[in-house]
Simulated scan of single mutants.
Amino acid sequence: MTVRDATCADIPELIRLREILADRMAQDGTYPVDAQWQEAYADDLRERLGSDDMAVRVVDAPEGGLAACGVGLIFERLPGPGLPDGRYGYIQGMTTDPGHRRRGHSRAIMVALMEWYREREVRRVDLHATSDGEPLYREFGFVEDGYPSLTWRDPS
């Protein structure tokens, strides 16, 4: 299996996989799925693929299309005691097509993303996990950090 960088040609498949993940996340909680996000997602991918602050890694499906994908992002906030340079990572959109699960695709993508973070000396990486993905992320050393994860969403 080969993990590679996504290209603009992969965007339709990246959207399809993100739709699968959105449906799965809705099963675990109250994750809202807004209409018409796909076009904005595609536009952002076209703009940011290959940038210094985003890595999109994919595994091709043997029959064509993508078997799995994952996105690594780097953000900056004010430096602090636990984050001296203010940079932190966020893993988003880790998804494996249901027909390709249990073959190591997500693990291989996680290895590639964590290597990307280490090369950039990012010392903290966050993610939100579905119940399906949580055991894999724990194997990579992800833990609760002791603070509640709280979210505010505009009710309008």
Rank of each mutant, 00 (worst) to 15 (best):
V71H: 14
W116Y: 11
Y41V: 06
L78Y: 09
G29P: 05
M114T: 05
M25E: 08
Q92P: 02
E63Q: 15
P148S: 13
S156P: 01
T130I: 07
D60F: 07
S106A: 15
G99R: 13
E115A: 15
R153H: 14
L83F: 01
W37H: 06
A6S: 03
G65T: 03
E134N: 09
S149G: 09
V56D: 07
Q92S: 14
R102N: 15
V71G: 04
E139A: 10
P32G: 11
L113W: 04
D34Q: 02
D44I: 01
R16F: 12
V143K: 11
D44G: 14
P155M: 11
S131C: 09
A26C: 03
A22P: 00
I20T: 03
M25C: 06
M114L: 04
I15W: 06
S156D: 00
G104M: 03
G64D: 14
R16C: 11
V111Y: 00
Q38M: 12
G70R: 05
D53K: 13
H128L: 02
A40R: 11
P135W: 03
A42Y: 08
R153I: 14
T130H: 07
D5R: 07
T96P: 11
E13Q: 13
E121F: 10
H128F: 03
V3K: 12
D52Q: 15
A6Y: 05
M25W: 08
R138P: 11
S131H: 10
C69N: 13
Y117D: 01
S131L: 10
Y117I: 05
E63S: 15
L73D: 14
P135R: 06
Q36I: 00
V111E: 05
V33F: 04
R24V: 00
V59W: 10
Q92W: 13
A55I: 07
F142Q: 07
Y90A: 10
T96L: 00
H100P: 09
T7M: 02
S106H: 07
R24P: 01
L73K: 01
A129C: 09
P98H: 12
R46Y: 04
E63M: 04
M1N: 04
S131W: 11
G133W: 08
